[in-house]
C-alpha cells in the first residue's frame, strides 16, 4: 500500500496537469508497479484524500484528483 501511495504522489506532483482522472493515475501507478490492482490504487488514493494529501476536484458530472497545494486548491473566487 505504501508503495502505491508513493507512486500516486510521484505522479500527482510530476504530471503535466494539476488535476487528473483516476484512470490516468491508475495507468501511471501500474507503470511503476505492474501488479497493483485497480481496487488497491483506489484504496490508497482514498487514504491519501483522508490524510489531506490528495483532493477531489468535481465538476458535478465527473471527478478528478489533485495534489493539495498544486493548481486550484481554494474556492475559485
Amino acid at each position: 500500500m505504501e508503495d502505491i501511495k508513493k507512486a500516486i504522489l510521484e505522479f500527482a506532483s510530476d504530471s503535466k496537469k494539476s488535476k487528473f482522472y483516476f484512470k490516468d493515475m491508475e495507468k501511471a501507478v501500474q507503470k511503476l508497479l505492474p501488479d497493483a490492482k485497480s481496487r488497491e490504487i483506489k484504496k490508497a488514493a482514498t487514504e491519501l484524500v483522508n490524510e489531506g494529501t490528495l483532493i477531489y476536484f468535481s465538476t458535478g458530472s465527473s471527478t478528478m484528483y489533485g495534489l493539495k497545494g498544486r493548481g486550484i486548491t481554494e474556492d475559485p473566487e
Binding site: Y56, S58, G60, T63, I72, E74
Partner: peptide, 16 residues
C-alpha cells in the same frame, strides 16, 4: 462550474 468543495471522506454529493 466545479471545484474542490466536498465533505470529509466523500468524493461526491456536493457540487461546487
Amino acid at each position: 462550474h466545479g471545484g474542490i468543495v466536498g465533505v470529509f471522506g466523500y468524493g461526491g454529493g456536493v457540487i461546487g
